[in-house]
Structures are given as C-alpha cells and as structure tokens.
C-alpha cells in the first residue's frame, strides 16, 4: 500500500506542475499585446503601460512565470483587474453562494440518479427501463443554460411559483433563499442526473450477471437483500468516480447557470472575467479547479486501493 501510494503521489507532481504552466500560459495565448487587449480599444498609451507594469508583462516570460509561481507558494493568486482586489478574496467572498448551489445539485443528482439507474437495471428492457434511459439520454443532451431559461418561463413567468432569478442571502430571508435556489439547482443537476443514471444502470446490469449475485439468489436470500447487500455495494465504485467528475461539471455548469439566474457566485465571477478579459481571474480559476481536480483524483484512487486490494497489485 505504501509503495502504491508513493508511486501515485509522485506521478501527480508533474501533472500539477503542468496544470500550473497551462493556467499561466493562458494570458500569453492572446495574439499581439495582452496589455492592450485587457485595456480595451479606447485605452490611452499610459493606461496600457500601467496594466503592463501591474501584470509584469514587461519582463521576460520565464521571469513572469517564476514570479507567479513564487506568489502561488505564498497563497497569492494575483489581483483581479476588473474588481481591483485579490483573486483569492474574490473567490472566497462568492463561495457562500456557489457552494450551497453545488451541494443542492449534487444531492439531487445522487437522490435521483442512483435509484433511477438501479430501477432501470432491475427492470431491464421493460417500459420502465426505456423511460429512464430515454430521459437520461435527454438529460445529457439538453444545454443547461437553455433549460434554465425555459424553467424561468414556465415556473417564473407563467405559473409564478418561483422567482425568475436573483439571489436572496440566507441571513436575510431563509425561505426566499431556498426558493431562489430551486430552479438553479435543478438546471445544474440535470446533466449529472442523466450521466449518473446511465452509469449506474450499466454497472448494475454488469453486477447482476456476476457469480456472487447468482449464489446469493441460489441461497434463497430475498431479492431486496441480494440487491441491497451484494449488488448495491459494487455499484458504488463508479458512483464515486462520477462524484469526482461532478466537481468539474458543477463548476463549469455554474458559469452559465449563475449568469442566467443573476446569482453573484463564483460561476458569475468567471463568466464576467471571460467576458471582460480579466486574465488574472481566469488564470486563478483554472489553476484552482485544475489543482483541486488532480488532488480529488488522487484521493479517489487511493480510496480505491484501500477498498479494493486488486488495485494495489494490479497492472
């Protein structure tokens, strides 16, 4: 186990360095002068020069990279040009909006996706299965920002059940806060519900064919015990993988969802940064998500090795 963990951790070090390099290089993909691009078309030479100095663009590439990396080691992600404050602070301030949204969406995903997939597998090739597979397929094909708009039309404008957008802080009015979260969480969750239902169904079908399930049935265990004790446990492995992927999907999903619903969260921060060419925020956002994803994958892999000894010795 120790050597497996050591090898796995060592392998992720170069990946993390590459993630840093890719995030940093974003600003240097800008054709021509990045400072001029950031300042916009109406900027004076002095303004462009000021931005060049602030971002250190007058120095050679390697010096810039070293400075940025040095800052990272001290927990400094740089300063946002649009907001004129540290990127780190801008992200932390918006966490209380995006985190609950992501958690609601994740809860919906698990509560709907897993049971739907299990039921579809248990009723394979019946109308139940076809309905679930069809809906799941639809779920992964619908653009979430469009779904968000259509939900606003239906529930906000026509039925007037829920607010059409905006965000109410929890401390101000918990009930209104909850209402303002409903449509965004549904819009954000749909894609992942579809994904998880499909994967759960596929794995469950595979598991049901295994010898130990047949043995359990042959022993005369009641059906619910076979499913609950033997089958479900093995379905959990891909589920853990999906939750790992979810982090990235929730984040990129929140960029459009928060834009549609006008919620001032991290997604909206990144959308504004992309629209306003605020490269320090883009770089910081990329670096942060990339790093978190690499670490999450590492943790998931190590967890597998703990749960399933075959992983440690395999390959």
């Amino acid at each position: 186990m120790f050597w497996y963990a050591a090898r796995r951790i060592a392998a992720s070090v170069p990946v993390l360095l590459l993630v840093t390099l890719i995030s940093f290089s974003m600003m240097h993909l800008v054709p021509g002068d990045p400072a001029a691009a950031i300042a916009g078309s109406g900027a004076t030479n002095a303004e462009i020069e000021a931005i060049r100095l602030q971002l250190g663009l007058d120095k050679p590439f390697l010096v810039q990279l070293a400075t940025w990396f040095g800052g990272l080691l001290q927990g400094d992600l740089g300063r946002s040009i649009l907001l004129n404050r540290p990127v780190w602070q801008a992200i932390v301030e918006r966490l209380p909006i995006t985190l609950p949204l992501a958690l609601f969406a994740l809860a919906l995903t698990l509560l709907i996706g897993i049971p739907a997939g299990v039921i579809a597998a248990l009723r394979a090739n019946t109308w139940v299965d076809q309905a679930v597979t069809g809906l799941a397929m639809l779920g992964v094909s619908v653009p979430s920002f469009w779904l968000a708009l259509m939900l606003i039309v239906l529930f906000g404008v026509h039925l007037e059940w829920l607010p059409t957008g905006g965000f109410v802080p929890f401390s101000e009015d918990p009930a209104a806060w909850a209402r303002s979260m409903v449509l965004p969480s549904i819009s954000l969750a749909l894609l992942q519900i579809g994904l998880l239902a499909r994967i759960t169904r596929g794995t469950m079908l595979e598991v049901l064919r295994q010898d130990y399930v047949r043995t359990a049935r042959a022993k005369g265990l009641p059906g619910w015990m076979v499913i609950g004790k033997h089958a479900l446990k093995n379905v959990m492995v891909p589920v853990v993988t999906v939750i790992g992927i979810s982090f990235g999907l929730l984040l990129s999903g929140s960029i459009v969802i928060e834009t549609v619903y006008g919620m001032p969260g991290i997604g909206r921060l990144i959308a504004n940064a992309i629209f306003g060419r605020d490269y320090p925020v883009i770089q910081g956002g990329l670096l942060l998500t990339g790093t978190i994803l690499v670490l999450l994958n590492l943790v998931v892999d190590l967890l597998y090795a703990v749960i399933d000894p075959r992983v440690r010795y395999g390959r």
């Binding site: 990946v15 590459l18 993630v19 390099l21 890719i22 990235g248 999907l249 984040l251 990129s252 960029i255 990144i270 956002g285 990329l286 998500t289 990339g290 790093t291 994803l293 690499v294 994958n297």
Partner: peptide
C-alpha cells in the same frame, strides 16, 4: 494535465 480542467472552462 489537460484533462484536469473542466472541458468547458
């Protein structure tokens, strides 16, 4: 490393 970023982002 490229896979580490959410594709859309």
């Amino acid at each position: 490393a490229l896979m580490a970023f959410p594709a859309v982002l």
